[in-house]
Design a protein around this nucleic acid. Sequence first.
RNA 1: UACCCCGUGGUGUAAUUGGCAACACAUCUGGUUUUGGUCCAGACGUUCCAGGUUCGAGUCCUGGCGGGGUAACCA
Length: 567
Amino acid sequence: MSTAPPDPEGTPTDDVARKNFVEQAIDADLAEGEAAAVLTRFPPEPNGYLHIGHAKAICVNFGIAARYGGSCNLRFDDTNPAKESQEFVDAIQDDIRWLGFEWAGAPLHASDYFEELYGFAVQLIEKGLAYVCDLSAEETREYRGTVNEAGRNSPYRERSVEENLDLFTRMRAGEFEDGARTLRARIDMSSANLNMRDPVMYRIARAHHQRTGDAWCIYPMYDFAHGQSDAIEGITHSLCSLEFENHRPLYDWFLENIDGLPHPRQIEFARLQLSYTITSKRKLQELVASGSVSGWDDPRMPTIRGLRRRGYTPEAVRAFCDGLGLTKFNSTHDMHLLENALRSDLNARALRRMAVLRPLKVVITNLEEDARIERQAVENPEDEGAGTRPVHLTREIYIERDDFREDAPRKFFRLKPDGHVRLRYGCVLRCDEVVKDDTGEIVELRCSMVEGTFDGQTPEGLGKVKGIIHWVSAADAVDATVHLYDHLFREPQPLKDGRTLEDDLNPDSLEVVTGAKLEPALGDAAGGERFQFERLGYFVRAEGETEPVFSRAVTLRDSWAKLEKKG
RNA sequence: UACCCCGUGGUGUAAUUGGCAACACAUCUGGUUUUGGUCCAGACGUUCCAGGUUCGAGUCCUGGCGGGGUAACCA
């Protein structure tokens, strides 16, 4: 759909061949014969729902594999059963498929390799490269030292291979309390890289694992599981985020010291940061727990499920991710990019409809009581094949309250007392009278239809009518509830400089509008169906509601709002 | 303070690996338009700083400065 036209000049400006630093590295590996086919992996921990940041990682891993004719595994990094669950395993697969990606073969799990991993650990013990340590968690931390200060060797560091083997066997057998002992790599307690100061490989934890049940009471740490899992699967390039940079020496150390394993290359890239939102799992969890949002799938959440309910298309999310670029620079992308990706996708595909959010009744006084003037409205001006639909102009219609002003500012091209405006697909209206109630609130406009103004015609002497507004026939209107969503946070960089959720949450991120008037064609829209409400934005019909409920996915660009803001 | 990584318009990415700094978004200005949408055209930079190598440096070297990451038996 968004295929770029071929460059007519044939100039070397093609953006097709432009490669990011990861692809350049892969090219080099391929050229040197370091790797044959490219195999990547997406390794989520099943302890939460996927968000827009994961979408980038998914597009990177699946995208690069596809570009090299390779494939991408889905592997759950399920080494911490206390925090993980099957619920997330299922949800993650669902979200990846929704995005439009399919992994190679069955979904894989680090837990599939627990037995093999255990064997690797035994091998390292036999080589004198791992030992059982009796230090408590707190002591381990103390012994590790700090960034400025070298660590100290554990008093258990010099245990014999036999003793270590015996102890490790008994750890597995469940002879010791949780946390009583660990298996640690024997590397260098004075390393400048804290990750190399005899990192823990296994801890004792009696937690029920969603796949292995109670078969194990010791679980491998990320560092000991991840690289070896990559190697077992024959991953060629293990792409991860920047915070694992300091782990790469350890990743490499395990692979070098375990016999017979291929050596995948870990390459780190910057994770996605988006303005006006957050992608910290913990903070998102907080939003859900505090009731600031209705759940992980609240349409304001940056989760895949949230975006989905918000009305985002997978195509838009992918287009957004593909436009990000891939670097090691810690940057924050503009939320506009995500929104524009959706606008551009839906502009091309969404059918247009008229809907009035805050209705103001207009009586067209020179129209008969039972008049029904049929007009053909264009379904989508970007897609001629979409055709037209009928709309009916009647004596009573609704227009948007915002489209009338008693004291209209300069450049306000809409309706004002004694002013003219064109009804979309209809005639020009003249505002003759403003009807108010006792409190002074405008309850009705009495207007007259100007003869000879259908089909864009303007009779002599009327002058150019610049304003065009949408409307809905009162006789045909379908009532609806509309959810107007805005950014969840009011700050471009939420939670910066110690600010809290309460400080930065946008109090107006959701406005529920009842009594909106929809054109009848919208009444039987299916759940999940998306439309452009003309002049308002893109909306999606909510699922699982019997009465019509629509959610605003994103507004249209609004140059009038911008103008007015400037004053 | 130790180690690792990163500094190119407002934001984010390019620059054929040493040869006229390009693209997208944002912003502003115009044009088209029965959506103040879409579309089209134009405007907006001494590549963090200082030295050095070179005919030539965003790119290489040295030294600063600035930002991020790292001290879970989390991933």
